[in-house]
Amino acid sequence: MAISRRDFLKVIGFTGVTSAVATIGGVLIGRGEDILKEIKPASKVRWAMAIDTRQFKTDEDFQKVIEACHKAHNVPNIPDPIRQVKWIWVDTFEKAFPTIEHEYISEEIKKRKFLLLCNHCDNPPCVRVCPVKATFRRPDGVVVQDMHRCIGCKFCMAACPYGSRNYNFYPPREFLSQVNPEYPTRTTGVVEKCILCYERLDEGKQPYCVEASEGKMFFGNLNDPNSPVRKAISENIVIVRKPELTTKPMVFYII
């Protein structure tokens, strides 16, 4: 059967349009690939911390670390224990590791105190739930909190399985004895937490807590086999909080 002139033109037209679209699409795809090539590969740095719980003995050992952090970050000193703001604090084994706690573990471990802070998880539930990207994960693994973006919905506090997030139940500025002008103060109704001193990491310094611990905490790039944290983890027995949730905490505890 002969093809009518009309059908022939239809086919030609259709083919023409299709190839034009394909060509333009191909050009765009090609350009996209070029653009991707120009973007630098994702950061190879993965900051992590190991806390040598054997070395923390006296209250003073803990206080030095906590004060260094809280003073530098203008963390308010709120007396109400259930509405405190704390970026780094101390608790018992039983409370820090409730899922692996056992009545017959060594008395020494039971009495030992543990520094608790944000775990800067590799798989952070708080980042997943934030509706405004006020909390986000940097390529180097630091989970940051933007107190000026936060709407105070407290979803992240429901999501965090470590109780590491703080809501400003009180106007925080009323509870500051001195203000560090280098770091912002906050307003009531926003969430805040440890930011792993990302502003110091960017300057090549260590976090305040690590510096104040005088060798009791190890910090560095987990991807670098020669970093202090990597060495500390490979040479000692370490545990993390609630590993069964697979949030992949980046704060390791040397036992």
Binding site: C130, P131, V132, K133, A134, R149, C150, I151, G152, C153, K154, Y167, N168, T187, T188, G189, V190, V191
Partner: peptide, 15 residues
Amino acid sequence: MGQPPRVFFVLLHPT
């Protein structure tokens, strides 16, 4: 919401 004036950030920064 702890910061009601910021609630429209949910639309401004859709996540």
